[in-house]
Design a protein around this nucleic acid. Structure first.
Lengths: 221, 221
DNA sequence: CTATTATTCAAGTAACCACTTGAATGATAT
DNA sequence: ATATCATTCAAGTGGTTACTTGAATAATAG
């Protein structure tokens, strides 16, 4: 108890920030934003070793950004609450707004010229209701199965050619992926526009869609 | 360019979080929330050496959380925009909501028993208009002079006795300080209640009051 | 130009963090 | 109980960060 309460408080706040200060942990949070997961699944998705993944998760837990529960032999992690998502989002907004490098990277992803405005979720919902749009989910099949926007097609970037072959060339396409941290949708839109399609990106991803309270479709295997 | 764009992006986001992950830098941001400052003034307020302070400020600048301009020989720093404040605030909210330690520290500051609800800013504004409340600014005199809530008294914690002597024992007192990161108001309220006063804390501090667009009084020396 | 003042840079040290490896724990099934 | 599986712990290594010290830059005053 040699430290003042002021320093003690600041150290706790700093702990939360430090938890967000490693790319590996941001990747984990992005995965968890899709839904709760076990350690092994997270390790596989992020490419971390299991021990390393576990240690990162414990840091996130210490910062109260995630919570865990036991399910048999497995330990299942999930985001503590929506505030965790807000924090990640604000982090991204500050970075995108103020860091030149970020803009350059994002511009590079979009094919460096005309980046069409992203489609807002409420607009997509309206267009979906009238059936005037094709929705493309650019995530791996297992994540698609666990929940996707109703009526969406599914194809990873590698599988885009398959989709291109069957799409109506005049269709308006809206692509989405895991969320604002995920770049699949950027790349898919760039590729589709390269094929001459009228493609745009959805603002946010599935977690945000869910957060809005909108309908989600699942495939039970 | 051996790293993928995905990793590059996450590293930029992580950079912003890392900038927030040291207590010294949070202290600097709290000071800057009061208004722009030069390096020396910041170093003195935070107790850092000048060189160390300068280096921390450069990290904050790299993360685009603060901006600097030259004014003669001095370099003046300020928060880049209101988003920086939002980030700090969200950080604090996550920490307060979910970290047991934080609650314990805050409870300790308030004299560990009955912590009265803080007064909301709009409520204080209304009460001020009808003159039914005494406002106490618990910051150092120079910060008080640079801007305070109109009609507020000023006393640091060390000077509280002076104020206690002249206050109407029946007065309702609202204390505030630098903002949510600052604990002076907590401590002042605890001390005043120890003296039998009806004292409460203002939610937020002067930066938040200003952010609301409310009137601020200054003393030009 | 030289001196002065405010800030930044550069180099060095101690502490800390990410990641790896291999062993230990905890829950379940046999 | 024993075996098995998922996760966590513990120890070690390389790289990074915070802070200190002393020198270097940049703007102004004389």
């Amino acid at each position: 108890m040699s430290t003042s309460p002021k320093t003690a408080l600041l150290e706790e706040y700093a702990l939360v920030a430090r938890a967000l200060s490693a790319p590996a942990r941001l990747m984990l949070l992005e995965q968890l934003a899709q839904g709760e997961r076990g350690v092994e699944a997270l390790a596989e998705k992020t490419g971390l070793t299991i021990a390393n993944c576990s240690q990162h998760l414990q840091q996130l837990r210490r910062a109260a950004l995630v919570t865990s529960r036991r399910d048999g032999k497995a330990v299942i992690y999930r985001l503590t609450d929506a505030k965790t998502l807000s924090l990640m989002d604000l982090l991204r907004m500050v970075a995108e707004r103020n860091l030149v490098q970020v803009e350059r990277i994002l511009r590079g992803l979009s094919g460096d010229e005309d980046a069409p405005e992203p489609v807002r979720r409420q607009d997509l919902a309206a267009r979906l209701a009238e059936g005037s749009v094709t929705v493309l989910d650019v995530r791996p099949a297992d994540e698609f199965a666990a929940g996707h926007i109703p009526g969406a097609l599914n194809a990873t970037l590698a599988e885009l050619d398959r989709i291109v072959a069957v799409l109506d060339p005049d269709a308006e396409i809206v692509a989405y992926c895991r969320g604002p941290y995920c770049i699949y949708a950027y790349q898919a839109v760039a590729a589709l526009r390269g094929h001459g399609f009228n493609a745009r990106r959805l603002e946010g991803g599935l977690p945000e869609w869910r957060e809005d309270g909108r309908e989600v479709q699942t495939i039970t295997g």
